[in-house]
């Protein structure tokens, strides 16, 4: 009993988070397939959109963050992640560069909301969406490192499982997650 608990304590506390992105990076993460078994032999998943955990827990060792920072909820979660994680990794192009999520940056927030909620199909009555229905949008979508300090990046849209494994296995081994040149390409 004691031994088992001790063993559990030595496991890496891993979290993944999903900000403004399409969840493709998480899909690619699941594509690690059997490597997932190796991963979870070494790590516990303590927070993730694919696990039903409501609050971001304290004392996380590594957090992979998918998606760009697009609204105030993302901003708050990013701050929580930073405060409670030893290592924060920008996971995928949206977190690293803003990518597709940031395509809206050319539009003002008001124009964007009008275009999406009022000019699109199924007109909604105006008003309320800003702080009742959805979290307030930031004026510009930002890559994660422009909001909180980030320790490593895994580029790719989505990053293929090989890249994820290269980075994550390095981190699990306590090394720096530096990817070789071929795995550093955006896109």
């Amino acid at each position: 009993m004691m031994a088992k608990k001790k063993e559990a304590n030595t496991k890496i506390r891993l979290a993944t988070a999903w900000l403004g992105g399409c969840s493709g990076c998480h899909m690619s993460f699941l594509d690690l397939d059997e490597q997932l078994l190796d991963l979870f032999a070494a790590a516990d998943l303590v927070y993730s959109p694919i696990a039903d955990i409501k609050e971001f827990p304290p004392n996380v060792d590594v957090t992979l963050v998918e998606g760009a920072v697009a609204n105030v909820d993302h901003l708050e979660l990013a701050q929580q992640i930073r405060a409670n994680s030893k290592i924060v990794v920008s996971f995928g192009d949206c977190a690293v560069t803003g990518n597709v999520t940031s395509l809206r940056n050319r539009l003002g927030v008001d124009d964007l909301l009008t275009a999406v909620y009022h000019e699109g199909p199924g007109n909604l009555p105006r008003g309320g969406e800003v702080d009742k229905v959805m979290p307030a949008l930031l004026p510009k979508v930002l890559p994660l490192h422009q909001v909180i300090p980030v320790d490593a990046t895994i580029p790719g849209c989505p990053p293929d499982p090989e890249r994820i494994w290269t980075a994550v296995s390095a981190l699990l081994a306590g090394k720096e997650a530096t990817l070789p040149e071929k795995m550093r390409m955006f896109g």
Binding site: V72, L75, E76, Q79, G127, V130, D131, A136, L138, L142, Q146, V147
Partner: peptide
């Protein structure tokens, strides 16, 4: 600064509406 937008933005919107 960006970090403070989490409080600032809802405040601005409420005052605007």
């Amino acid at each position: 600064p960006v970090m403070e937008l989490a409080e600032e933005l809802p405040r601005r919107m409420r005052s605007a509406s």
